[in-house]
C-alpha cells in the first residue's frame, strides 16, 4: 500500500528525514514514534503530498508521488484521510459543512452527503454538534470532528498526526478507539505520536524515528 525508498527531505542544509525506506501493507495499523523534531510530521506530509521529498521514491497504491502531476494529485488525496495535529478545521463553517467538504469536492448529491455526515457524526459521538462552529468545541471534540472529516469519504489510508497530543486520557482513549474501528473496517492506519505510553500498550508495528532516521522497528517488516 505504502512504500518508500531511500527518502530524504531537506530544508536548506538541514535534513529533516534521511534514508527512509518503509513497506506498509494494506490494512496495517502502525505507529510512527519519536521525540519532537524526529521527523514524524514531515514523513506524514510527504505521504499526503503536503510537501515533496528532496530525494528518493514514494509509492502509494502503485502511484509514484515524485512523478504525479498536479492534475492527478487531488484524486490521490481523496484516497488518503488526514487527521492534522492542529485539526485544520474551517472556523467559519459549521461542523456539518466541515465534514461535508471531502464529499462536496467529489460531487456527491445533497441527500447522500447529509446521510453520510450524520452517520460519521454518530460514529464519533457528536451528532448533537451538527450546527456548531469549531471554535465553540473542546479540543477533544475538535479532534473527533477532524477524524470524522478524514474518514467520511472512506479513504484507503488514514494518516493521523498526534491525534491524542492535546487530549486528556479519556478523550485520547475515545479517539484511539475510533481509529481502531476504522482499521477494522479495512483502512490502513498510520499514527504519528510522541506518546510512549500509547505505543507501549499496543501490539502493533512501531517505527521509531530519531533525528530524521529510522532507529528501529518493533515487530519486523
Amino acid at each position: 500500500m505504502i512504500r518508500t525508498f531511500h527518502v530524504y527531505k531537506s530544508y536548506g542544509a538541514r535534513n529533516a528525514l534521511e534514508d527512509i525506506s518503509l513497506h506498509i501493507q494494506k490494512g496495517e495499523f502502525i505507529f510512527v514514534h519519536g521525540p519532537s523534531g524526529a521527523g514524524k510530521t514531515t514523513l506524514l506530509k510527504l505521504l499526503y503530498l503536503g510537501e515533496r521529498a528532496t530525494k528518493g521514491q514514494i509509492l502509494i497504491d502503485g502511484v509514484n508521488l515524485q512523478r504525479i502531476t498536479s492534475k492527478r494529485l487531488p484524486f490521490l488525496r481523496r484516497k488518503i484521510g488526514v487527521v492534522f495535529q492542529d485539526f485544520k478545521l474551517i472556523d467559519t463553517q459549521t461542523v456539518f459543512q466541515n465534514i461535508a467538504l471531502p464529499l462536496e469536492v467529489t460531487a456527491h448529491d445533497k441527500k447522500y452527503i447529509r446521510k453520510k455526515v450524520s452517520y460519521v457524526l454518530r460514529m464519533v459521538g457528536l451528532e448533537n454538534r451538527t450546527n456548531s462552529f469549531p471554535p465553540y468545541l473542546s479540543g477533544g471534540e475538535q479532534q473527533r470532528i477532524a477524524i470524522a472529516r478524514a474518514v467520511v469519504n472512506e479513504p484507503m489510508i488514514l494518516l493521523a498526526d498526534e491525534p491524542t497530543g492535546n487530549l486528556d486520557a479519556g478523550s485520547s482513549q475515545i479517539v484511539l478507539n475510533l481509529l481502531r474501528q476504522l482499521h477494522i473496517r479495512g483502512a490502513t492506519v498510520l499514527i504519528a505520536t510522541h506518546d510512549r505510553e500509547l505505543v507501549s500498550q499496543s501490539n502493533d508495528r512501531v517505527i521509531f524515528l530519531n533525528k530524521g532516521r529510522i532507529k528501529k522497528m518493533k515487530i519486523d517488516d
Binding site: Y48, G50, S70, K71, P74, F75, R77, R78, V82, K88, L89, I90, T92, L101, P102, V105, T106, R149, N153
Partner: peptide, 13 residues
C-alpha cells in the same frame, strides 16, 4: 487556510 484544507481533502483547482 481554508483553500489549503480544500486542496488537502482532494479539491481540484
Amino acid at each position: 487556510e481554508e483553500l489549503e484544507i480544500m486542496q488537502l481533502v482532494g479539491a481540484t483547482k
